[in-house]
């Protein structure tokens, strides 16, 4: 077993992620995801029940406030399921984003004691939070049965939307994580950031409002925020609120990919300083 020599030199400038090295650490990646999942609901009474309770409680609150009191338009489907279908991807996104943004700060002990590709940290939460996502997704089908809503054939597109949702969480998570090591402001800003991002996405309101109010240019601008396409896509596929918003998905995917790739470069650039400033 003869491996190539490792050369350690001062780093400078912009570099791409070292994929081959990342591959060598795939077992570690798996165990870290495993750890995240196993540890998450340790010493709780409800355990994975929290994965259901959180979106269901949010749904109840949103239905009372936005559905009943504010009478927000819900594209012709009951407000409860209208918001729940959006909450499932949204709660995944916000929890994966926060966890991955703070992953480096929360693991400084490892960061300063051992070497492995640091990208493993923010990426771990992107995968581990999927467990909650799939558990809460089951409730969608129960609600659909309750309200007697049949899924459309577009349901087959859900995996594509999930990938887009993960890419967005990963891209933004990597950006924030790289910033957080030096600027601990990220830690304090995260709750607000996710809150603002939630109201910017059509979680409690319908995406059709965008086109009604701002026309085609507004629709394009909103679609740059990839979660808009993801949430509207979920609604279209499961609740038949309209045709699949391909334009939004396309724009959103491109923008998600750009966020992700630039995030990787920025992360790589900051990576070498992590151990020194952590």
């Amino acid at each position: 077993m003869k491996s190539e020599p490792i050369v350690i030199e001062p780093v400078s400038g912009w570099q791409m992620i070292n994929w081959r090295e990342l591959r060598e650490y795939r077992d570690l990646f798996r165990f870290l995801i495993d750890r995240d999942i196993k540890v998450l609901y340790k010493q709780t009474v409800l355990g994975f029940g929290w994965a259901i309770l959180r979106p269901v409680l949010s749904m109840v609150i949103f239905t009372i406030i936005f559905g009943n009191l504010a009478q927000v338009d819900s594209d012709g489907v009951p407000y409860a399921i209208f918001s729940y279908v959006a909450l499932v991807p949204w709660l995944y996104f916000s929890s994966a984003l926060s966890a991955s943004a703070l992953s480096l700060v929360n693991n400084t002990d490892m960061l300063t004691k051992i070497y492995f590709p640091r990208l493993v940290f923010p990426m771990t939460s992107v995968f581990s939070k999927l467990v909650d996502f799939f558990i809460s997704f089951v409730i969608v089908f129960l609600l659909m049965a309750w309200y007697r809503i049949a899924p459309t054939g577009r349901i087959l597109l859900i995996p594509l939307l999930i990938m887009m949702m993960m890419l967005t969480a990963a891209g933004m998570g990597v950006w924030f994580a790289a910033m957080s090591v030096k600027y601990r402001d990220v830690k304090h800003a995260m709750p607000f950031v996710t809150q603002i991002l939630m109201y910017a996405a059509p979680v409690v309101w319908s995406g059709t409002l965008i086109t009604e109010r701002f026309g085609a240019p507004g629709r394009f601008l909103f679609a740059l925020y990839p979660m808009v396409g993801v949430i509207e896509g979920f609604r279209s596929a499961l609740l038949d609120t309209g045709p699949m918003p391909w334009d939004m998905i396309l724009v959103g995917s491109v923008s998600a990919a750009i966020i992700f790739v630039t995030g990787l470069f920025y992360f790589r650039r900051m990576e070498s300083t992590f151990a020194d400033v952590a």
Binding site: P5, I6, I8, E9, P10, L111, Y115, S272
Partner: peptide, 13 residues
Amino acid sequence: SRITPPSEGRVIL
């Protein structure tokens, strides 16, 4: 151990 990069020079392992 590659936890922090050097500012100058080189190491070959």
